[in-house]
Simulated assay, not measured.
Amino acid sequence: MMKFLSVLTMLFFPLVALAGEPYEAEPRVVGGIPSANNEVPWQLFLVTEYIGTRPQQCGAVYIGDGYALSAAHCFFNNQGNRNISLELFGGATSSEGFKQGTGFGATVVINPNYNAQLISDDIALLKIQGDLPANIQPIKLASQADQVAMDQLFANTYSETQSTQFNLLVSGWGKTSGNSAFTSSILRQTVLGGVPDNICRTQWGGGATIVNSIHLCATSSEPELVRESCSGDSGGPLVWQDPDHVADADRGLRLAGIVSFGIKTCDQTKPPGVYAQVSNYLDFIQENTGGSLPVVNPTFTENPFDASKYSGVGDEPGSGGGIIGTNGGGSSFSLWGLLLLGVAAVGRIKLRK
């Protein structure tokens, strides 16, 4: 069996990079640390396959009762064609153990309002087939009241020039820098600060249409250090820690966003990365999970928001580098047999106005 992101990926990834070069923005972790076992147990690894192009890599997040969320764009290749099959993996921090035929299948519901040109309503629900390993744990969905609290927090703490306390966490097996040829075989995570919607909209200018109710924006909380999601992280989780519930068994951790898009180079602190705002899609989730949201009461033994882990972690803006990788770019050829040519990280989504 071939391992998804080992030597073969490294040998053939340059084809992917060339294919993605014309794109202006891409769905996408840069400037972070390797995840410890059970630190982000909701994180899943997603591979989708297509006719005529190589399989693609994304992230996903387990929300309980056999359901997961990912980005809608993860189920289309660069030609706009839907995937013909998929496989989900989890319960480990190294992707080298994720072998073809050993993962889980799933049925997918794409949000009906998804717009590929604007990269809006970029969210999909997956119903997982089979029983997941016991060490995969769900994370609670952020409520609309949680989002109101986040918006207030972002407005009170964001600064373009001064370092502030981080308040969000992103994770994935994506690229470790925008100019890297490879995604990461080790799950990585980094911390971010939320960006108010109006500032996010201004910083993106004409490059993207930022809509308050459907987008959540985040970037490094330390302007001199790049921390970011990147190619290969698409569909993965953006997590908020509710300060009023840190002492709870679930440490107050809430799924706030799904990795959607950002600048191609992943080496700047602005414009910020953009995420699908989960609280806006609770009705969509409920309608497709039998009429009720998943009920979960997880117990998390690790605290990924421990500030001591991230001191000085990051890279200089404009260097094209970082310590963590994010949501990848798309590859070519076809189906699982083409894992011999490597799995491509999903990304390189061009914003067309």
Results as ranks from 00 to 15, higher is better:
residue 289 T to D: 00
residue 234 S to R: 10
residue 231 S to Q: 12
residue 36 A to G: 05
residue 248 D to Y: 11
residue 171 S to Q: 03
residue 228 E to P: 05
residue 259 V to W: 03
residue 145 A to C: 07
residue 214 I to R: 03
residue 69 L to F: 09
residue 95 S to Q: 09
residue 288 N to H: 14
residue 154 F to C: 00
residue 100 Q to F: 13
residue 279 S to W: 04
residue 115 N to Q: 13
residue 245 H to W: 09
residue 323 I to P: 02
residue 145 A to F: 11
residue 8 L to K: 07
residue 284 F to I: 12
residue 121 D to C: 11
residue 165 Q to E: 13
residue 174 G to P: 01
residue 14 P to R: 08
residue 345 A to E: 07
residue 189 Q to N: 15
residue 29 V to N: 07
residue 325 G to F: 09
residue 216 L to Q: 06
residue 164 T to Q: 09
residue 284 F to K: 12
residue 316 E to P: 08
residue 95 S to W: 06
residue 253 L to N: 11
residue 106 A to D: 03
residue 343 V to L: 09
residue 91 G to W: 01
residue 88 L to Y: 03
residue 214 I to Q: 03
residue 76 F to D: 00
residue 203 Q to I: 09
residue 257 G to L: 07
residue 249 A to M: 10
residue 198 N to K: 08
residue 164 T to F: 04
residue 320 G to K: 10
residue 320 G to W: 06
residue 168 L to H: 10
residue 68 A to T: 10
residue 232 G to W: 02
residue 192 L to H: 02
residue 68 A to R: 07
residue 116 A to L: 08
residue 147 Q to Y: 06
residue 259 V to C: 07
residue 199 I to Q: 08
residue 346 V to I: 10
residue 158 Y to F: 14
residue 63 I to Y: 00
residue 131 D to Y: 03
residue 52 G to M: 13
residue 58 C to I: 12
residue 83 N to K: 05
residue 126 L to A: 11
residue 21 E to C: 11
residue 79 Q to T: 13
residue 80 G to K: 11
residue 133 P to T: 14
residue 229 S to A: 13
residue 38 N to V: 13
residue 1 M to V: 15
residue 73 H to W: 01
residue 107 T to A: 04
residue 313 V to G: 12
residue 264 K to W: 00
residue 72 A to T: 04
residue 330 G to Y: 00
residue 40 V to R: 01
residue 217 C to D: 01
residue 344 A to H: 06
residue 52 G to W: 11
residue 205 G to V: 05
residue 157 T to H: 03
residue 15 L to C: 08
residue 49 E to Y: 10
residue 88 L to D: 03
residue 242 D to H: 11
residue 245 H to P: 04
residue 131 D to W: 00
residue 230 C to H: 07
residue 58 C to K: 10
residue 249 A to K: 14
residue 315 D to R: 13
residue 47 V to M: 01
residue 39 E to I: 08
residue 238 L to Y: 02
residue 168 L to D: 08
residue 143 S to I: 04
residue 310 Y to C: 07
residue 70 S to L: 06
residue 195 V to R: 01
residue 324 I to Y: 08
residue 32 G to W: 10
residue 316 E to F: 07
residue 26 E to Q: 06
residue 270 K to W: 00
residue 269 T to Q: 00
residue 109 V to F: 02
residue 28 R to E: 04
residue 9 T to K: 09
residue 227 R to E: 05
residue 270 K to M: 02
residue 147 Q to T: 15
residue 3 K to P: 05
residue 62 Y to P: 02
residue 84 I to H: 06
residue 39 E to P: 11
residue 237 P to H: 03
residue 290 G to H: 02
residue 31 G to K: 14
residue 275 Y to I: 07
residue 202 T to F: 05
residue 341 L to A: 11
residue 135 N to W: 02
residue 300 F to I: 15
residue 286 Q to E: 13
residue 190 T to E: 11
residue 275 Y to P: 03
residue 46 L to F: 14
residue 162 Q to G: 10
residue 55 P to C: 07
residue 194 G to S: 01
residue 211 V to P: 00
residue 320 G to C: 09
residue 20 G to A: 10
residue 61 V to H: 01
residue 317 P to C: 02
residue 9 T to A: 08
residue 190 T to C: 15
residue 212 N to D: 06
residue 226 V to T: 07
residue 172 G to V: 08
residue 79 Q to I: 09
residue 124 A to S: 14
residue 100 Q to V: 15
residue 173 W to D: 15
residue 291 G to M: 04
residue 128 I to R: 02
residue 57 Q to T: 14
residue 160 E to M: 13
residue 90 G to E: 01
